[in-house]
């Protein structure tokens, strides 16, 4: 700080004007502060850093696979070759019972598996955040009502419900997404609520209330930015769990037959005799893909949570 401030009024003004002209001479127009960045990766040292990087690398790989399957897949997914073929140069992972190339199937299945995971997680995070924020911020009767509702949702068993729904409706991934999304927001809501309760006592929220900011504005600009660091890892972990749910439901035969996800591939390998004939190239790749994808997302999620913990520590130190 090169500028002195004199508490003597005239002196203070002088100093201020000095600063003013200084800025002007630079010719720059008053720099508006840029938006806070939420990019929270940080170079960890040791094992954690390695795991983090592996997670990010795998995740990027899978996202690319989902976005541009044709780059990874040598053939179209519905193209037919000789069935039950072992891996060869032509078909790196062999073929299945109806002669589809498994590598191509795998690449195209990534999109469906990940869509289900992300959409379900997005729905659940959005609902959970909105309800948690409202409950925590307004408190009182609304809080009681919303949290009561959360408890009710918490006791609904997900998988049996989907099985029942699958029996009555035509199974489709959209129903799957909406059920997974609509029924898994309660933990997000609880976490958001507790954090909001804590934040609404903070000085800046109180002073914003006193200055006459609207509740919506306070929630949006004061509380939400301070909980996003918790929500993001929550979102990642929700994605992972939705993908696993999808795979297990597909395996049970409740998946969408027209959308061949990794779970569906496993299911077919099981029902069409891939396991009995010990055709590892058929049932192993989708399983490994599911595991690796969930693992990568979880690794990122854990990394973010650890980062959040560190941030919290820093905050405690500065206080």
């Amino acid at each position: 700080m090169n500028q002195f401030d004199c508490t003597d009024n005239s002196c203070m003004k002088e100093a201020g004007i000095e600063g003013f002209s200084e800025k002007k001479s630079e010719g720059s127009n008053f720099e508006f502060p840029e938006e806070t960045s939420y990019w929270i990766f940080q170079k960890h040292k040791g094992f954690q850093g390695l795991f983090n990087r592996i997670g990010v690398f795998l995740f990027i790989l899978f996202v690319l696979m989902a976005l541009f399957p044709s780059v990874f897949a040598p053939y179209a997914p519905e193209e037919r070759f000789i069935p039950y073929e072992a891996p060869s140069e032509e078909h790196l992972l062999g073929t299945n019972d109806i002669g589809n190339d498994i590598l191509s199937e795998l690449a195209f299945g990534a999109r469906i598996s990940m869509t289900v995971g992300f959409m379900a997680a997005l729905i659940s995070t959005l609902i959970g955040t909105a309800l948690g924020l409202c409950a925590g911020y307004f408190r009182g009767a609304l809080d009681e009502l919303l949290m009561g509702f959360t408890d009710v949702v918490l006791v609904i068993p997900k998988i049996p419900l989907i099985i029942v729904m699958g029996a009555f409706l035509r199974p489709s991934i959209w129903i799957l997404i909406s059920i997974l999304g609509l029924l898994s927001w309660e933990s997000t809501a609880r976490v958001t609520r507790s954090k909001t309760l804590q934040l609404r006592g903070a000085g800046y929220v109180k002073s914003a209330q006193c200055m006459g900011f609207s509740s919506y504005h306070i929630m949006k600009s004061d509380i939400f930015p301070n909980i996003i660091h918790i929500l993001f890892p929550k979102f990642m972990l929700a994605t992972a769990s939705a993908m696993i749910s999808e795979a297990s439901l597909s395996f049970l035969g409740l998946g969408d037959l027209s959308m061949k996800s990794w779970g569906m591939m496993l299911s077919f390998a099981f029902s069409q005799g891939g396991f009995i004939r010990d055709m590892w190239w058929w049932y192993m790749p989708p399983g490994i893909c599911i595991t690796l994808c969930v693992l990568s997302i979880a690794l990122i999620g854990f990394g973010l949570e650890a980062k959040e913990g560190e941030h919290f520590k820093e905050g405690a130190n500065t206080l």
Partner: peptide, 9 residues
């Protein structure tokens, strides 16, 4: 009676 200015970071 205050000291003018701030202590430096």
């Amino acid at each position: 009676i205050p000291i003018p200015g701030f202590s430096p970071p």
